[in-house]
């Protein structure tokens, strides 16, 4: 009757972990003992089955999004100033689960539009902009307060939400939630 230590020794032989002298002893045991031979065959078969059939796993996230997240974190770690675009897209990625890739991608496109408008207009006053969106079901507003160094972007589902300013007075312009960058 083999002990657990005998079996572990056979396993070490299968895995190539024994020195020559010990390996020879195990070989002799396998050659003469049916139970030892059985253990050897079983261990070898399992090891081979696993080595040759590692399950394949693939990332479903697009290459660009995966890289963008890494690059943002690298920049943050290096304490370099992160661009508004990367910062906002990072917030969106955190706010949304990965299963909402399509809306997130649409949102990123909106931000790009917002930033483009911002660059073109270069305002010095506070202002509100409604961005034309490529997605049918997602709308957005942005609000910039130069005096407060604040830039707010609001994204909403056109079918279920219609964000209205709580107060139309410019100084109190607020929405009931949203994504902001300061």
């Amino acid at each position: 009757m083999m002990t657990i230590n005998d079996k572990l020794k056979i396993q070490a032989y299968v895995d190539g972990e024994l020195d020559k002298a010990e390996a020879k002893k195990v070989e002799a045991l396998i050659a003469t003992d049916a139970e030892a031979r059985n253990v050897y065959e079983e261990l070898k078969t399992t090891a081979t089955l696993l080595k040759e059939n590692e399950p394949e796993v693939k990332l479903s996230v697009p290459r660009e999004l995966y890289w963008q997240q890494i690059y943002s974190k690298i920049q943050q770690a290096e304490s370099k100033p992160v661009s508004v675009f990367e910062y906002i897209s990072g917030i969106i990625q955190l706010a949304f689960s990965r299963k909402y890739l399509v809306p997130v991608t649409a949102a990123i496109a909106i931000f790009a539009g917002v930033l483009t408008v911002k660059e073109i207009v270069k305002p010095t006053e506070d202002y509100l902009v409604v961005i034309e969106n490529v997605a049918d079901d997602i709308g957005s507003y942005s609000f910039r307060a130069s005096s407060e160094k604040m830039f707010v972007v609001w994204i909403y589902n056109k079918e279920t939400e219609s964000p209205k300013p709580v107060n139309n007075e410019p100084d109190d312009l607020m929405f009931e939630g949203g994504v902001s960058y300061q």
Partner: peptide
Amino acid sequence: VMSRLFYAR
């Protein structure tokens, strides 16, 4: 490691 590997297999 050896015992975990054995029982895992």
